[in-house]
Nucleic acid binder design. Sequence first.
DNA 1: ATCTAATATGTCAATAATGACATATTAAAG
DNA 2: CTTTAATATGTCATTATTGACATATTAGAT
Lengths: 179, 179
Amino acid sequence: MNTLSYGLLSLLTKHSRTGYELMQHIQPFWQAKHSQIYPLLALLEQKGYVAFVHVPQSDKPDKKVYSITDLGKEAIRHWIKEPTDDPVFRDELALKVYCISLVDKEHALKLLADRKVYYVKKKERFNQLFDKFKEESGKDLEDLEITDLQFGPYVLVRKAMMKVDADLTWCEWMKKKLH
Amino acid sequence: MNTLSYGLLSLLTKHSRTGYELMQHIQPFWQAKHSQIYPLLALLEQKGYVAFVHVPQSDKPDKKVYSITDLGKEAIRHWIKEPTDDPVFRDELALKVYCISLVDKEHALKLLADRKVYYVKKKERFNQLFDKFKEESGKDLEDLEITDLQFGPYVLVRKAMMKVDADLTWCEWMKKKLH
DNA sequence: ATCTAATATGTCAATAATGACATATTAAAG
DNA sequence: CTTTAATATGTCATTATTGACATATTAGAT
């Protein structure tokens, strides 16, 4: 079973979700399209790692709500203890910046401004997520313990916030360097 | 032509390199194996974007040293001005952390310690790269301008250093949270 | 009225990426 | 003496990922 499949199981440990919701919420950790997720969910269901119920909706199209099974949770516990792959990071912007001396300052600033917009939007989304966590959780988020289902998602939001801040700091530093 | 092909051209703007060296030096921006790079270099050569010379070696296997052509530089200038893809980031560790409440504290600490080793090694490599930049460049690195061939590679090393520091900060914060 | 975006699920061809196989040399470590 | 790691280039089958096609509803914008 591939990493994304385990990732889907992982998201389902917090609560049941549809394929569409899984696609949306796995984005910060793993950028996958729905065309990759739906077939994997069918495989996971075949293997008994997840189960789903049909939920008809009047205002929106009907949906399939997936839940993780005990077998699925066992699979996850085994997976966590196995060696972890190195993270994969592919950034077209970095490749462009590498040879930025080939174009003029205006094009460089445009490139940077576009990416800054991307990072600012990302930061806003993480801030909203953080606020939602604060609302949902009764206690102080800093008091969450590893045994709490919210612990993992919470520390990941903090990780994402730290990283996007580092990215924005670089953007600002870079902009100043270009005058 | 795909993004990695442009990336290879980008690295060749600094100086000529072998396929093996390209594979090594593109890693911080794009994790590609040699099996992906060699066929792309052959295509780039066919299209006239790069040219190579055979260099026999006595101590090591013979090599093919690639250089970018004027046509290749034109292709790059066009590429830089086109819209840039969003960065792709895939992290198995994040998926595991999401459901970390399913395992005990010891396994969580192991997971974190392993990743810290990875980040520390990465940081060391970037520090070495930074030192090499300082040696190679005559002037103060902070005085580099966009017109300088070293400018792009330098600002990318700084970006990488900022990000790996953010990652290590998170590791430390996380370790404290686990007691 | 008409278009666009979001929700919701799915398939499938094309492309990208990985891992294994293949070969050859040298240096260093056990 | 033997194995391992690094250098160096390549192919190829398998797997992963993307982008296009397909369909249907509702809400909001033009």
